[in-house]
Simulated assay, not measured.
Amino acid sequence: MTFILRSAYGFALALAAPVTSASELGYDAYIDSAKRIKCMYGYVTAKTGNFDAARQIFEDCIARWNDVYLMIWLAQMHESGSGVPVDLNKAAALMERGANQPDDTSYVSLARYHWGTALAEGRGVKKDWQTARRWLLRASEGGQSEADEYLMRMDLSAETKPPTDYNNKRAP
């Protein structure tokens, strides 16, 4: 009998509890949150196509916690025009910021790879193969196998071009 009374009491409490609104369950509820978990919800928000909410979450997480993973995501949104106007300069600035982080976590290495490719291709920045090579080597040292492949393609491409010296003049 005690169990039945306790169960009935628990059921009554559950009925009396406030109902969570649908807006509290949506990703928009995390835009103004001060909790770090919101950064994970930003990723999910972008994957569901709510790019405006994702952008706001990404920007806040980057400002509050210098989140490199979200720097990469936001940069890719700016490169592709997903929910924001295409802006290769902003994309490159975010990749550079991520690449310049002092640690060697995998996301920093990934940002170094993307920064190196932006430099190699001149996406949002002036093309600079020498600097691109340095960043790609750092990304490779950090475990980014894509950097190894990109460096090999750069080397093959360089073999088909006439040699140049550091002043961009043709070598003798």
Rank of each mutant, 00 (worst) to 15 (best):
S23A: 12
G26L: 13
R134S: 13
S7C: 09
D155L: 10
L70E: 11
D104P: 00
E149P: 00
W129I: 15
P163K: 14
A22V: 12
S140D: 06
W73P: 00
R97K: 15
D103C: 05
G124N: 02
P162M: 12
K127E: 13
D128N: 15
A29C: 04
R123T: 00
G98F: 03
L94T: 11
I72S: 08
A17I: 06
Y43T: 09
L156C: 05
D128Q: 04
A99H: 03
A8N: 03
R112C: 01
A99G: 06
I31E: 05
G81E: 07
L119E: 02
Y30Q: 07
A99K: 04
V68Q: 08
R112L: 00
M71W: 02
R6N: 08
C61P: 04
R112S: 05
H78G: 01
I37S: 08
S140C: 01
G26V: 03
D104V: 10
M1F: 10
A54F: 03
A91M: 02
L137A: 09
P102T: 12
Y107F: 13
E141N: 13
S106N: 06
E149R: 14
Q144K: 12
G81D: 08
T160G: 08
P18C: 07
K161M: 15
R6P: 00
K47M: 13
M40H: 10
Y9C: 02
Y27A: 06
R123E: 10
I62C: 08
F3A: 11
N167I: 02
R55F: 06
T117I: 12
R97S: 11
V68S: 05
S7A: 14
A63V: 01
P163C: 12
N168Y: 07
S106V: 15
L119A: 04
A93R: 09
M40K: 13
S82V: 00
Y150V: 06
A34C: 00
D104Y: 07
L156M: 15
E96I: 00
E79G: 03
K169L: 14
S106H: 11
G81K: 06
M152W: 00
M95A: 04
M77K: 03
R64W: 00
Y9K: 11
L151A: 05
E59A: 15
W129Y: 05
P18R: 07
S145V: 14
A22R: 07
W73M: 14
I31F: 05
G122I: 01
L25S: 05
Y30A: 09
A12K: 09
T131A: 14
A8R: 08
V44T: 06
A63Y: 07
W129Q: 14
A132C: 04
F11N: 07
E79Y: 05
V86R: 09
R138A: 15
A139Q: 06
P18Y: 02
K126T: 15
